[in-house]
Nucleic acid binder design. Structure first.
Lengths: 149, 149
DNA sequence: TATTGTTATACTCTATAACTATA
DNA sequence: TATAGTTATAGAGTATAACAATA
């Protein structure tokens, strides 16, 4: 509690870290889009497919997870469904609800997507186990000690 | 060099770190889009404006920095120019080139954008100086010790 | 000929509002 | 009446291909 600014201006070190985080974000995104493109998917399609590969979800819930309007989900699921990667199922409990679920083929594509995400390997390859533990702790604290989502 | 896999499957710790990085990326993006929206800018417009606030750039160079096709830059600059935040200037050295440059008003918006980026303060606020130094080192090594871009 | 920026085109993602079928 | 999903619409970003002006 040393700086008397109303807004608290970030110091040099903090700015450096923020820049580095920006670089990580940029790189992560590039590689994610690349991996998606390798499977002829857009970023949004890849994210939706990955979500569904864990469990079937109502369209509404899908929109919440993707942080977009429900009307958008319709189109994304439409395109994945046209490719046979996803299907819509009725919800026995509520006839208004449609559950989106991956097909077998979709599950395979989701797996391939996950595996072609180089980010899981390369950038961390240079770090020792001890350093990874350290990084994990720092990132957790940055994110507020809560495992988000 | 212990795992005899062809592809090398990431271990538990690595996967955890990758997930955390994913969470950081998601949060960074949300906050960036929010900050942009506060100034009635889209993400792409905000990125382009931020770039130009450092120095005027040819349309071509701008496309390289944004990692998109030059034809897209035309539209983004059009919209920023319509709002008076950016202008096109001739390049005295090459009459084919158009230099995009921020206006005074654009410079102000870019500054406001930078300041409303909470990511520079909040998430790092919980870390001590020593921890930030440690995080900086780890992120640098992750990014290959090269300060990218 | 090669390069710079633009235009034309088509597709995807996005939000908003209005609609339908259920609840 | 409230909710789930869809449709209609419009704007923005994206890539590709073709083009005019300049090098």
């Amino acid at each position: 509690m040393a700086t008397p600014h109303q807004t608290r201006r970030p110091d040099e070190l903090t700015l450096e870290v923020v820049d580095l985080i920006g670089a990580v974000v940029a790189r992560y995104h590039e590689e994610y889009e690349e991996a998606a493109a390798e499977h002829a998917l857009t970023g949004a399609q890849a994210r939706l497919l990955s979500l569904l590969s864990l469990e079937p979800l109502p369209m509404r819930k899908l929109a919440q997870r993707l942080r977009c309007e429900p009307s958008n989900v319709t189109g994304i699921v439409d395109r994945l469904e046209a490719r046979g990667l996803v299907e819509r199922r009725p919800d026995p409990a509520d006839r208004r609800v449609k559950l989106a679920a991956v097909t077998e083929e979709g599950r395979g594509v989701a797996r391939g997507l996950r595996e072609s995400l180089r980010f899981a390997r390369e950038p961390l390859a240079g770090l020792s186990e001890e350093e990874r533990v350290s990084l994990r702790g720092l990132l957790r604290r940055m994110l507020g000690d809560v495992v988000p989502r």
